[in-house]
Nucleic acid binder design. Structure first.
Length: 224
DNA sequence: AGCTGATCATCT
DNA sequence: AGATGATCAGCT
């Protein structure tokens, strides 16, 4: 699939996927389907990237950089409520001087997001899971303010030597959680004395309550 | 190691 | 049961 040339073209393609089951899309693009996602956690996301013409195996950019749009698939239950949090970006634990909300990766990634809900309950076979209607979202001023507030609180902990105080309970809409190969993968950070330490890489994630708000606003009639 | 794509699975 | 912390795969 060639990359879409306009926002409306991308939306049109996304709407055409709505209602299809994952097996139908995988067959159309000759993509092997795993039995489950245990060892293929990013499979649904990659499938829809292919189907929509995003640049595969891409870089630290939006999926549709020319359109300024990030693609996110999100697993939902039968009511359209998120089953998982949404990873946004890695948190800069070092070399973070001068980073402010306005030039942050989180704000960049969330400027404009095409959300595609997909049935995610494990009782539904992967092949039978249906794709929902796409939602093109831009944060409202109020939503961005909440994101910025959490981001600043969490970045303050990182920058001011509070890494040891960080856990997933902090933040109303945004949280920090480990994001690495495993608990042995370490990165550089700074402790409360300003000393360089090895610490778990952390990522910013959107809480389910926040993404539910995004999905619900549009899905009152039919998303799935 | 650090990005991309995320979900798993244990613990509370 | 839901959230937190841990983990999986591929590419650079």
């Amino acid at each position: 699939m060639t990359t879409p040339q306009s926002e409306s073209q991308l939306l049109h393609r996304a709407h055409q996927l709505a209602g299809l089951r994952l097996a139908e899309v995988a067959t159309e693009y000759n993509i092997q389907m795993p039995t489950d996602l245990k060892r293929h956690k990013g499979w649904v996301g990659m499938l829809l990237e292919t189907a929509l013409g995003a640049e595969a195996g891409s870089k630290a950019q939006q999926d549709f950089a020319a359109l300024g749009i990030e693609l996110k698939t999100i697993p939902v239950n039968q009511h359209g409520y998120p089953l998982e949090t949404t990873f946004v970006s890695l948190a800069p634990l070092s070399q973070n001087s001068g980073v402010v909300w306005q030039n942050s990766h989180v704000r960049y990634k969330l400027q404009k997001v095409l959300w595609i809900p997909v049935e995610g309950e494990r009782q539904i076979a992967l092949s039978d899971r249906r794709i929902g209607s796409p939602i093109l979202w831009q944060p409202s001023a109020e939503q961005e303010a909440r994101l910025a507030q959490d981001w600043e609180e969490l970045m303050d902990l990182i920058v001011l030597g509070g890494l040891h105080k960080i856990n997933a309970r902090i933040g109303e809409v945004l949280q920090l959680r480990p994001k690495g190969a495993n608990s042995k993968a370490l990165t550089m950070g700074y402790d409360h004395n300003g000393q360089a330490i090895k610490t778990l890489p952390l990522g910013f994630y959107l809480r389910k309550s926040f993404t539910a708000e995004i999905l619900q606003k549009f899905c009152s009639t039919s998303t799935l």
